[in-house]
Amino acid sequence: MHPAYSVIIFTCASGAGYGLLGWLALSAIRGSALERPFTLGLIAFGVAFALITAGLLASTSHLGRPERAWRAFSQWRTSWLSREGVMAVATYGVGGLYALLWLWGDVGGGWPLALLGLLTLVCVLATLWCTGMIYASLKTIRAWHHDLVAPLYVLFGVVTGRLLLNAIVAVVGSGLSTTAIWVTLLLLLTAWIAKAAYWSNIDTARRTHTAGDATGLGRFGVVRPLDPPHTRANFVMREMGYEVARRHADRLRQIAALLLFIAPALLTLLMLVASPELVILLALAAVVSAAAGVAVERWLFFAEAEHVVTLYYGRDAA
């Protein structure tokens, strides 16, 4: 599949933004948001909503008619893309209210904050899930129609959001707790294992459809393209027949694993023994590394995915 930059930016940036918002929501549920440090909240909510908005705006540039994007809220009954749009708006509403209450609200016992936090968390997870399901629901793309795709979208949002929160807490907060560091390490490890399992799974899974099935001509023997229907690549080939990055898939997977999991994990581990000033540097480095890593991972997610339609264009099996 052709990796559209706008969609890569969207899923990476919004994913991290939703993840960060989710962690902020969780702090209310756990009760630790009762102190509600203003500067930290302002920066953290600001970064979260800025990333979410930047990603959503980037995604509209993928559209042929972005001025009609509002129409995408209507078909939530059947379309995961529409559901994602609806959930994104809902998250703005609920999450925005939660942010306002956190920053300026006069809440005594804290339960309104906890309730809104819970709703925000649900919205965040649902939005990330919808993003994953846009891809996971497509039966035509074997590597996407996989049980781990939607959970991985959620997990990567949560992990990159956590790294962002760590950096913000390190810079403007009261320093990172040991628990926060161990939670981060556990999440990075989980994400790495899940992604490695996904990669090994799509590599070994059988390609079930053949050119013989696609044309129905398999009964006569092997089907080979003789004359293409067009002299230059058409839309279908440009969009679905993208193969450039596949040559480097193994190397790019190693790079993604290094930048997205290994480097952030080592940097986070070092925070256990580093001075507060160094922790700031380590946390920021982890964010930069994971951002680059998730971009490579997302690029591969598209570039490695084979579409069934390529069977008509010379692929043996998909």
């Binding site: 559209l63 129409r71 035509t140 969009e239 679905m240 579409h307 339609v309 008509y312």
Partner: peptide, 14 residues
Amino acid sequence: CIGCKLCSWACPYG
């Protein structure tokens, strides 16, 4: 149509 191209991804027949 907003030109999101998702329908073309969902079609196995191109």
